[in-house]
Every structure is written in C-alpha cells, then in structure tokens.
Design a binder for these strands. Structure first.
Length: 401
DNA sequence: GAGACGTGGAT
DNA sequence: TATCCAAGTCT
C-alpha cells in the first residue's frame, strides 16, 4: 500500500487513510448532491473538451448559452475543424480570452488529423492540443477516460488550501507544486470513481467551499478540514495585495458610409486578437474623411487595466470618397452594424453596434456612456441603457444634405 | 517566471 | 461602488 506522502502534512501521518476517506466522501457526496445535468456531462470527448476550454476562467452560468450555440453550429470536432476561423470567433464573441477560440480551432484541426475517428488518449495526449494545459487535460482525461490524474483549478486550490490550512499564496510556484502533489495523493484508487471525484472537486469549490462564506455545515469533508478545525476556513487562501489598475485611453473611428461602418481585423496577438474592430481614430484620417464629432465614450474594465474608449464619427468628404486605407491593412470591410454583429467583435464594440441597430443584447450591463450635444459641447450623459431610443436614433440618422 | 489575456458574477 | 476572481494557458 504505497501511500504517497501528502505535502502540508507531517511525515508518518496516516495519509493513506486520509486520502481514502476524503475521496470516498467526496465521490459519495457528488453522486448524491452534485451537479449531474450540465449539458456537457457525459462521455462525448468533443463536448467535454469544448466545455473545459470555455470554462477556463469563466463561470458555468456564463458558458451555458455559448456552449449551446456552439454545439448547435458545430456538433462535432470534424464540423469545427472544417469551419472558417471567423465563424468560430463570431460564436466566441463576448466570451473573452479569444486566444482560446483560436487555439480551439487549431486544436480541432490537429485532433482530426492526428486522431481521426477517435480522440487523444489520456491527459498526456490531450495536453498536446493547443489551449489545453495540465489542469484542462486532466479534467478531460478524468471524465472521458477515467484516468487517475488531478486537476488544480482555482476551486481546487481553495479547497486544498483550506483542507491543509495552507497560509502561503497558492499562486506561488513552490506552493503550487506542493498543491499539485497533494491533489495527486488524494485521488481515489478506483479509476471508475474519477469522473465523480473530479466533478466533486469542482462542485465542492463552486457550491460549498466558496470564496466567501463557505458552507462548512454542508461540506462532506469538513471533519477532515484543518482550516475548519481552526475556524479560519473563510480566511483562506490568503489574498495577496493587488496593485491599482492603470488606465489606458483608446480612440476608435466610426467611419460611416451609407449607413455602414468600416471594420478592420485586429492582429492575431494581443488583446482581442483576430477580432473585427473599429479602426483607430486619426488626427488625419486615412482617405478623405471629415470628423463629425464624438459619438460615444466607453469605459471597459479588464482585470489588469481600465480602457477609456472614445469613438469619433467620420463621414466621407465627398460622395463615394471612402475607400479602405492602406493603414488599415489587408482586411477591412464596410458593413452595416447589423452585419457587423454577426462577426467576432470585442464586447464594448458589440454593445455599441447593438445600440446602433437598437437590438438588445444579453448581459447589456451598461458601462457605456453616450455624449449628448449641449451648447456645442459634448457632455457625458447617463448610462446608455437608459437612452436606447436616443442613441439608436443617433446612429441611425442618415446624413440628409 | 511574471505578465498578458476578457468578461461578468458576487459581495 | 470597488474589488476579487472564476473548470488556466501561453509567452
């Protein structure tokens, strides 16, 4: 009975017994109380892989509608592999971390080329797909192939930090390595328990061992939990100090022509890589355009900084004067806002376009402000949510000479 | 190894 | 409102 040493515990402690008890209780709890009706649960490797990628740094509730649309359009990895990247990005639009969509597309092509008619076998092979790291590979392999490999996402880090009363920052490399080892040592012996165990770790972190106000009264492993015993479960893991988020100004040009607007594809690397976006607003706009005033200011908060986006409207100086400028690159398209909404666009632009066509969008929590014209001067007015009609009219307004 | 990468939920 | 951070990976 080759018990593995569990980090964070004193040597010669009964680690075998702890691991067996922990796994047994978690598996039993998951089968009784855990989630069983998520649309990706089952043994379809494609759906499991897709869901795990979508769920990276993204909550279940957010993923659900995206997953439904995605599997309707791409029911299989083969369908995804032959699709144009643009369509994948369009379905991903609004979900964030767009490198995931680009990796997903590349991974689908690699999958069907290298494992035709089947799928990667085991975590080692899953991790060869772009966008699939150690934790995601382990989750897929545990669910689909019942492989005894641990996951270590944010939920599991929190669970383990409490279980062993870890005071260190779990993101520190040395601590993370020990957490991986601990996660491995806690796995159930029976491979058939791996799906329920893995789902149980996720369910426990998401439903019971929550960041704030953990429900230790509902926890199947509370008796094993050092933090609970010490009464410090809610205080772990310790949070690190965060630097204040810097701000950055962005200036977009709304180059409008016959009710359509020019969009350009962003470079594949960097923020919103591969997505379609408004061209930068220039002091000397490319082509023969004249500035026609600021039409919106958007505040877009990201994890590491805040974007202040100013949108300036441009109109052709003369009839049919507009043409894509070389500065915009090869890929530039002039589309109606409605057409543009069918592309992969960043969320702040999605909001702007939705307002332009007066189409309500999901989760339209407004952090967008419009500029009202008052005495020849622009002023920030109320949240745009309260002014759908005004703003829609603003964008719809044809320039009638 | 530290920073970049999106967006929305939760408090 | 401000802040943290979520089924992380890549460079």
């Amino acid at each position: 009975m080759t018990g593995q040493e569990i980090p964070f515990l004193p040597e010669n402690s009964h680690t075998d017994g702890l691991a067996a008890t922990f796994a047994a209780r978690l598996v039993d709890w998951q089968r009784r109380c855990g989630r069983h009706d998520l649309p990706w649960q089952g043994d379809d490797p494609y759906r499991v892989w897709l869901s795990e990628v979508m769920l990276q740094q993204t909550q279940v509730r957010t993923v659900l509608p995206y997953f439904a649309r995605f599997v309707t359009r791409f029911p299989s990895v083969e369908a995804l592999a032959v699709a144009p990247l643009d369509e994948v990005l369009a379905l991903w639009s609004g979900l964030g971390y767009y490198a995931r969509a680009r990796h997903l597309h590349a991974a689908a092509r690699l999958w069907v080329a290298r494992w035709p008619g089947t799928c990667p076998q085991g975590a080692q092979e899953w991790a060869q797909l772009p966008g699939v790291g150690r934790s995601t590979a382990a989750a897929i392999a545990a669910f689909v192939q019942r492989e005894r490999v641990p996951i270590l996402d944010g939920n599991v880090q929190r669970v383990l930090c409490r279980l062993f009363a870890v005071e260190e920052d779990p993101r520190a490399a040395a601590t993370a390595r020990r957490l991986w080892d601990a996660a491995h040592a806690l796995l159930p012996r029976d491979p058939d328990d791996m799906p329920a165990y893995t789902q149980g770790m996720m369910d426990l972190g998401a439903l019971v061992c929550t960041r704030t106000r953990p429900r230790c009264d509902l926890c199947p492993v509370a008796e094993l939990c050092a933090a609970h015993r010490l009464g410090i479960a809610a205080q772990l893991p310790r949070k690190r100090a965060r630097a204040p988020v810097p701000e950055q100004d962005l200036r977009w040009g709304w180059y409008e022509e016959d009710g359509a607007v020019w969009l350009v594809r962003r470079a594949p690397q960097g923020i919103w890589g591969g997505l379609w976006c408004l061209p930068p607003a220039d002091e000397a706009p490319p082509g023969r355009w004249r500035a026609a005033g600021e039409i919106a200011r958007l505040t877009h908060r990201l994890t590491h900084f805040t974007l202040n986006i100013t949108v300036t409207r441009y109109l052709p100086e003369t009839l049919r004067a507009a043409e894509p400028a070389a500065a915009w690159g090869e890929e530039a398209r002039c589309l109606t806002p409605h057409e543009a909404l069918a592309l992969g666009v960043p969320q702040p632009l999605r909001r702007l376009l939705a307002q332009a066509v007066d189409v309500p969008i999901e989760h339209a929590k407004g952090n967008m402000r419009r500029l009202g014209v008052a005495k020849g001067k622009f002023e920030v007015s109320e949240r745009i949510d309260d002014h759908d009609e005004d703003v829609a009219r603003l964008f719809r307004g044809k320039e009638k000479p």
